[in-house]
Every structure is written in structure tokens, then in C-alpha cells.
């Protein structure tokens, strides 16, 4: 599948935003000590800004962005619509918390409810984003039980990297959170390894024979394409990445996305305040690069069954 930059930015940026929202809610609901405001305001603001950038970026993928509001209507059947609705609904409790935190200390029963709603809605929104891909039977690499956990864990991991950096900046770093963040990154690494193992070893169930119905008499081979140039189908669905190239990118994605940030955060937890802050900020940058590569590969490595009509033997 064609890896569109707008969708890569959308899923990584909003994923990190929802991850940060959810983890901040966890932190506060669990009663852990947090730094004095403006820590909460700035963390909420950053999360909502990342989500907004992501959502705005996703509209660049549209042919008619001015009609984007119509996408809220079909939540009964469409995961894309559900994602849109939940993304907006999440802004209600999270936005109230942001505004409230400018004036009050956001604790007490009603604010607790708002934190709880933010946590649940953030998780649900990321799950819906993943389901947009996981629900497509036409793409084996996406129609996989691994996809929803991958999106959830990666959102949490990128949120954790941001949260650690913010805690360092506001002088609230603590070893438990640092190691928890490193553990989340390790979980991200393991789940990506599991996902890649699963897509590399899954059987290709669809064949050119079944796609054309001509398979009963032996192999089927395309001898003439319907068109001499490209078309939308080939540009959008025919994108292929060389196996060697992909293997190299996978290693870099793991290194930048998980290994380096986890090590930097762990090291930062046991070193001085200044070095810890520098390391945690470095982790944010490296992790962003790694997860962008991971998301690029998620698209580039996905093979659509329509490639069968253009001569692929199996998909």
C-alpha cells in the first residue's frame, strides 16, 4: 500500500497524543505525586496539540477536506467514522480538564470522572484507528489480531516517552515511572517483532487462480495489462518495498523507536537532573523518527489482493 505521509503523521502524532492523555490520566487517577501546575496544563495542552496536528494532517489525505464533517455520520458501520466521532468526543473531557487546570486544581469527584472518561476515550479512539486497518479483509498484513495491540502499545510507548520528558522538565521525574516507560518501550519492541513474525509466516490464502476463477487448469499468468501507464489502483495499492530494504528499515525502526529511547530513559532515571532531562528529550526525538519508520513500513509492507489481477501469484 502507498505510504501517504499525511496518514503516517496522523496515526503517529495522534497516537502519541492519546497515549500521553491516557498515561497522564493513569498517573493522576493512581494518586502518584505530580509536579505543580503548569505541568498538568502543559501536558494536556501538548497531548491535545499532537492530536489536533494528527487529525488536521489526516484531512490532507482527503480529496475534499471541506466535507470532512460528513465523516461523523456513519458510526454504525464504519470504523473510520467511529474513530472520527470518538476523537472529537475525547476533546470534551480532555478539553474541560485543560481549561479547568488553568484555573483550578483538577481534583475531586467530578474531575476524577473527567480523567476516567479521558482515559477510556483515548484508548477507544486508538483502537478505532487500528480497526480501520484491521477490518480490511483485502490486506493480509492488516487483517491481523496483532494490529490493534500494536497500535495501543505503540501509542502508550510514545506517550510514555513524552511523559518522562515532561516530568524531567518539571522536576518530577521518578524511578518507577522511568522504568515503567522503558518497560512499555520493551513491550512495543516485542509486539512489533511478534507482528512481523506473524505476517512473514502467515500463509498467502488468495491466489491469482481464485481471483480470476481460471486456476482450475494450471497456473495463471498475466500476459497483457489493461493499460500501458499507471492507474490509481497501481499507484495506491501496487506499492512494493524491496525485501532487503524493508529488513534494514525494520532494524532501524526497532533501534530508534524502542531500543535507544528505552536505554536513554533508563540511563536518565539513574543520572543527574540535567543529564536526565537531556536524555529524555533526546529519547523523544529518536523515538519519533523510529515510529515514523515503523508506520511507513506498516503501509509499504502491506499487499492488497487486487495485486493478483496485475500478475501477483498469491496475496
Amino acid at each position: 500500500m502507498h505510504p501517504a505521509y499525511s496518514v503516517i503523521i496522523f496515526t503517529t502524532s495522534s497516537g502519541a497524543g492519546y497515549g500521553l492523555l491516557a498515561l497522564l490520566a493513569c498517573l493522576i487517577l493512581s494518586g502518584q505525586p505530580v509536579p505543580e501546575n503548569p505541568f498538568v496544563t502543559i501536558t494536556l495542552g501538548l497531548a491535545l496539540a499532537l492530536i489536533s496536528v494528527g487529525l488536521l494532517s489526516s484531512t490532507f489525505h482527503l480529496g475534499r477536506p471541506e466535507r470532512a464533517w460528513r465523516a461523523f455520520s456513519q458510526w454504525r458501520t464504519s470504523w473510520l467514522s467511529r474513530e472520527g466521532v470518538l476523537a472529537v468526543v475525547t476533546f470534551v473531557p480532555a478539553g474541560l480538564l485543560f481549561l479547568g487546570s488553568l484555573v483550578f486544581e483538577v481534583s475531586g469527584f467530578l474531575w476524577t470522572l473527567a480523567w476516567l472518561a479521558t482515559l477510556v476515550l483515548a484508548i477507544a479512539t486508538v483502537a478505532c484507528t487500528a480497526m480501520i486497518y484491521a477490518s480490511l479483509k483485502t490486506i493480509r498484513q492488516w487483517h491481523s489480531p496483532w494490529v490493534v495491540p500494536v497500535y495501543l502499545v505503540l501509542a502508550a510507548a510514545s506517550g510514555a516517552v513524552l511523559l518522562v520528558a515532561l516530568l524531567h522538565l518539571f522536576g518530577g521525574q521518578n524511578a518507577t515511572i522511568g522504568f515503567a516507560a522503558s518497560a512499555t518501550l520493551a513491550a512495543g519492541l516485542l509486539i512489533k517483532l511478534g507482528y512481523w513474525h506473524s505476517i512473514d509466516h502467515a500463509k498467502k490464502t488468495h491466489t491469482i487462480g481464485a481471483a480470476t476463477g481460471l486456476g482450475g487448469k494450471g497456473p495463471v499468468r498475466q500476459v497483457a495489462s489493461p493499460h500501458s501507464g499507471e492507474n490509481f489502483i497501481m499507484k495506491e495499492m501496487g506499492y512494493k518495498v524491496a525485501r532487503r530494504h524493508a529488513a534494514k528499515l525494520r532494524r532501524l525502526a526497532l533501534l530508534f523507536g524502542f531500543v535507544v529511547p528505552a536505554a536513554a530513559i533508563a540511563l536518565g532515571t539513574v543520572s543527574g537532573a540535567l543529564i536526565g532531562t537531556i536524555l529524555s528529550l533526546g529519547a523523544v526525538v529518536v523515538c519519533a523518527i523510529g515510529l515514523s519508520m515503523e508506520r511507513w513500513l506498516f503501509f509499504a509492507e502491506a499487499q492488497h489482493v487486487v495485486s493478483l489481477y496485475y500478475g501477483a501469484e498469491a496475496a
Binding site: 500500500m1 489525505h61 482527503l62 480529496g63 475534499r64 477536506p65 466535507r67 470532512a68 460528513r70 465523516a71 464504519s78 473510520l80 480501520i132 480490511l136 479483509k137 483485502t138 490486506i139 488468495h206 481471483a211 492507474n231 490509481f232 489502483i233 495506491e236 495499492m237 492488497h304 489482493v305 487486487v306 489481477y309
Partner: peptide, 21 residues
Amino acid sequence: TCIGCKLCSWACPYGAREYDY
């Protein structure tokens, strides 16, 4: 009312839909 999100073309196994850029 189409917003040009192209998701329908991803869902179709038969390549029946073509987006008008």
C-alpha cells in the same frame, strides 16, 4: 458527499473503484 478518503477502494478486493485525483 464523497470526501475522497479512498477507504472504499482499499476495502474492495476487485480493484473496481478508481479515485479521480
